[in-house]
C-alpha cells in the first residue's frame, strides 16, 4: 500500500467522514518516523549537497598536502645548512631529528581553521537561511538532528585530516629523500602524530559546531573560533603574570603538543591531562549547545 500519494481514491474514505471529529484519526502516521539512522542519512545528504562544503573539504586537502611539501623542503634546506654552518648544525642537532616526523602534520593549524569554520557554518547557516525551521519541523526532538550533524562533521574532519596527513607524508618522502632525511610513515610516532592530529581537528570541528549553534551567526561563530584558537594563545603569552602562563597550557590549541611529544616536556601538561583538557573543551560547549538548542525557539 502506498502511503505517499495524494490519490483521492485513497483518501476517499476520509472524505465521507470529513465532518466527523478528528479524534479518531489521532496517530494517523502510516509510515516510519525520524529514527537516528534516518536523521543521520538526511544530515549526510545535506552535508554533501552544498558546494561550499565540498570546496572547504578540497581546500583542506590542498593546504595540508601543500604545507607538508613546503615543510619537507624547508627541513631539507635546514639540514643542508647544518652541513656547512656550525651554528645551524648545533640547532639542527638539537631538534632536527624530530623535524622530519612533524612534516606531514605541518598544515594542521590551517586544517583546524577550515574544518572548525565548517563546523560553525553547518550549524549557523541553518539559522541564517531559515533551514532550521524545516530541519526541526522534521525532527522536532531536535537533539537527534544536532547529534547527527555533529557525527557527520566529526567523522568527516577525522577521516579527511588523516587522509590529507598521510598524503602529505607521501608527498614529503621523495623531497626528504633528496636531502638524505628519513621519514617512516609507519613508525609508531608517525602513526601517533596522524591519529592525534586527526582527532584534534575533529574536536575543533565539534567546538565550531557548538559555537555555531550557540551564536547562530556565521561571522560571530567563526570569529569566536579564531579568538579561541589563534588570538587567545598569543594574548596569553603577551599578558604578564604567572596566571596567564599557567592558563595558556589549558587552551585547546595547546593540547596537541603534549599529546604527541616523544617524551614529556617540562612545564607542559602530561599527555593524559592534555587529552582530558581537550575533551572538556569539546564536551562542555557541545552539551551546553544541545541543552540550549532544545530549549530555545527556532
Amino acid at each position: 500500500m502506498s502511503s505517499t500519494t495524494l490519490d483521492p481514491s485513497r483518501r476517499g474514505a476520509h472524505a465521507g467522514t470529513g465532518g466527523a471529529p478528528a479524534g479518531g484519526m489521532s496517530g494517523t502516521s502510516t509510515g516510519p518516523g525520524p529514527s537516528f539512522f534516518r536523521v543521520l542519512n538526511s544530515e549526510f545528504i545535506k552535508f554533501r549537497t552544498l558546494l561550499s562544503t565540498l570546496i572547504l573539504l578540497g581546500c583542506t586537502v590542498l593546504v595540508v598536502v601543500g604545507f607538508g611539501a613546503l615543510s619537507a623542503w624547508g627541513t631539507g634546506q635546514f639540514a643542508e645548512a647544518a652541513a656547512t654552518d656550525p651554528q645551524a648544525a648545533a640547532a639542527f642537532a638539537a631538534q632536527g631529528g624530530d623535524l622530519a616526523v612533524g612534516v606531514p602534520t605541518s598544515g594542521i593549524a590551517f586544517a583546524q581553521l577550515i574544518l572548525g569554520s565548517l563546523g560553525v557554518l553547518l550549524m549557523s547557516s541553518e539559522f541564517t537561511t531559515g533551514m532550521a525551521r524545516s530541519t526541526f519541523a522534521a525532527v522536532p526532538k531536535r537533539i537527534p538532528a544536532y547529534a547527527a550533524k555533529l557525527l557527520v562533521v566529526m567523522v568527516t574532519a577525522f577521516v579527511l585530516t588523516a587522509a590529507s596527513v598521510y598524503l602529505a607524508g607521501l608527498m614529503a618522502l621523495p623531497i626528504l629523500d633528496n636531502y638524505n632525511l628519513n621519514l617512516d610513515l609507519a613508525s609508531p610516532q608517525s602513526v601517533k602524530m596522524l591519529l592525534v592530529n586527526s582527532l584534534y581537528v575533529a574536536a575543533v570541528a565539534a567546538i565550531g559546531m557548538a559555537l555555531g549553534s550557540l551564536i547562530r551567526n556565521s561571522a560571530g561563530g567563526i570569529m569566536s573560533l579564531v579568538g579561541l584558537f589563534f588570538v587567545a594563545p598569543i594574548a596569553f603569552q603577551l599578558i604578564p603574570g604567572d596566571f596567564f602562563v599557567e592558563a595558556r597550557k589549558y587552551l585547546p590549541g595547546n593540547t596537541v603538543e603534549p599529546m604527541t611529544a616523544v617524551q614529556h616536556v617540562p612545564d607542559t601538561l602530561e599527555a593524559w591531562q592534555a587529552a582530558m583538557v581537550l575533551g572538556a573543551w569539546v564536551v562542555i560547549p557541545v552539551v551546553l549547545a544541545a541543552v540550549l538548542l532544545k530549549k530555545r525557539d527556532v
Partner: peptide, 23 residues
C-alpha cells in the same frame, strides 16, 4: 524559503524525505 539558499530544491526535499524514509 525555510531552505538553505545554496542547495537545490530537489536535494532539499530529498534531505527532508530521508528523515522519514519517504521514497
Amino acid at each position: 524559503k525555510a531552505v538553505h539558499t545554496s542547495r537545490s530544491a530537489y536535494n532539499h526535499l530529498l534531505a527532508m524525505a530521508a528523515t522519514h524514509s519517504i521514497p
